[in-house]
Design a protein around this nucleic acid. Structure first.
Lengths: 104, 104
DNA sequence: CGTGTAAGGAATTCTGACACG
DNA sequence: CGTGTAAGGAATTCTGACACG
């Protein structure tokens, strides 16, 4: 029923290419991961793999950093967004449980 | 006026990842390029970079090869398609020249 | 805190070639 | 023709650390 997860979220880009795409040094990219601002996948031998979404996210982070926003603050914003997402999902789940299509 | 060329055509994937994605060996992938069936970009130091379109194209090639279609035949099909595309563009250009929006 | 850099090792990619068929 | 493989070299990526501030 699902079609492919759209190319935007497929984790296939190496850190070198991400560096070119974003203009960020690999050091910075790894640091933002260390701070849990970004979450690449790992290949079999531990190489980081990023999606286009990750690239966009990194450019957003770069903009915020330039404005003087600290990684801690960026992380905080992210956490808040995640909570909202979780809440949305929960409510959606409850609605489905009461009024949704019957599961077989 | 243009927005980004869509992620589908951005050449950012290394041959190793393409190999995983398609199930083809790197040898095969390079061979199909040698036969002009696929056209990756090159990074600064000569590393091949593929797009998701290329990955799809490779899977299509793989299917045809399994059916016994030779690379030569696949190449021929491609050439025909390209000719049609060129013709389309030409006609479109002529229509524009006669009835299109005036250029400043 | 955020980022640069040198360090050493492991994995990647490249090309040209030989092999088989 | 289509694909495998061994070969040698160059570039990539990884981690942990020291540096500065």
């Amino acid at each position: 029923m699902d079609n492919e997860p759209s190319y935007k979220d497929k984790k296939v880009i190496s850190i070198g290419v991400v560096s070119e795409l974003t203009g960020l040094t690999e050091r910075k990219i790894r640091y933002y991961e260390e701070k849990n601002l970004i979450f690449p996948q790992r290949s079999n031998r531990g190489y980081r793999k990023y999606s286009f979404s990750d690239v966009e996210r990194l450019m957003d982070i770069a903009d915020q950093r330039e404005e003087g926003v600290t990684t801690k603050e960026i992380k905080h914003e992210l956490t808040i967004k995640e909570r909202k997402e979780a809440k949305k999902k929960m409510i959606k789940g409850q609605l489905n449980a009461q009024f949704g299509v019957q599961k077989k």
